[in-house]
């Protein structure tokens, strides 16, 4: 087992992660309970929810107790690398949802052509998860050390990414899915953009984590 595997293992047994999955599964069940209409409309809703949930998962996956954080940061080669690995483990925790959501949406919508719809769904949900993970790295300790500020950064980042035109790679996919005009190529390009977005935000967050003088400690430096 690698260090990412250990972080993922720690994440899987944490109640905050279980809560994020439970909330997302509830959202999927509610959105797909009745007549759902075009599948792209479902993708837009469940993708938007996944953006918020992947932010939540990355924040929830950050180890907070000082003894564990110190041990893992020393082994990882410093706080910067540990923050990057925690972002990766948070994103990995969202991957099952990236696959599950489009399948559920397609089956509920009684879509005649499964293949293209599933591909579009997976790409758009992956885009959402990557954008959410990028926001999550900025909203986690030690980059954001106050819980209330972390919540504001996380929630504010998600609202910005969904509500302001051009603010994130997910926005054009979200808009196209909402009006039923999304294509696989559009989603694929957005997904590549989301990879770059997540990489840049995670690198930025890692740089800030590396500059903290007391990583893992609750005290302000």
């Amino acid at each position: 087992m690698s260090l990412v595997g250990l972080l993922l293992r720690l994440q899987l047994v944490r109640r905050r992660s279980l809560a994020a999955w439970a909330v997302y599964l509830t959202v999927l069940a509610v959105l797909n309970a009745g007549p759902t209409g075009p599948v792209q409309g479902s993708f837009a809703m469940t993708g938007a929810a996944l953006l918020a949930v992947s932010t939540w998962l990355v924040m929830a996956g950050t180890v907070c107790d000082q003894a564990t954080t110190s041990m893992l940061a020393a082994v990882a080669g410093g706080p910067r690398r540990l923050h990057l690995l925690q972002a990766v483990s948070g994103l990995l925790a969202a991957v099952p949802l990236v696959v599950l959501a489009p399948i559920w949406d397609v089956l509920a919508a009684d879509q005649p052509e499964l293949g293209p719809a599933l591909l579009l769904g997976v790409l758009s949900h992956l885009t959402a998860a990557l954008v959410g993970a990028g926001i999550g790295t900025l909203a986690s300790r030690p980059v954001t050390r106050d819980d209330a500020v972390a919540l504001l950064v996380g929630a504010g980042g998600c609202l910005l990414a969904l509500g302001v035109e051009g603010s994130s790679p997910f926005w054009p996919v979200f808009a196209a899915l909402a009006d039923g005009s999304a294509r696989v190529t559009t989603a694929a390009v957005a997904c590549l953009g989301a990879v770059a977005w997540a990489t840049v935000l995670t690198a930025l967050a890692g740089a800030v984590a590396g500059r903290r003088r007391s990583y893992g400690a609750r005290a302000r430096s």
């Binding site: 720690l10 107790d65 000082q66 003894a67 564990t68 041990m71 020393a74 082994v75 990882a76």
Partner: peptide, 15 residues
């Protein structure tokens, strides 16, 4: 990289 055991040994869950 280094190994650091903090003053309070951590009891990592399911480990």
């Amino acid at each position: 990289r280094a190994f650091l055991l903090a003053e309070r040994a951590p009891a990592l869950p399911r480990c």
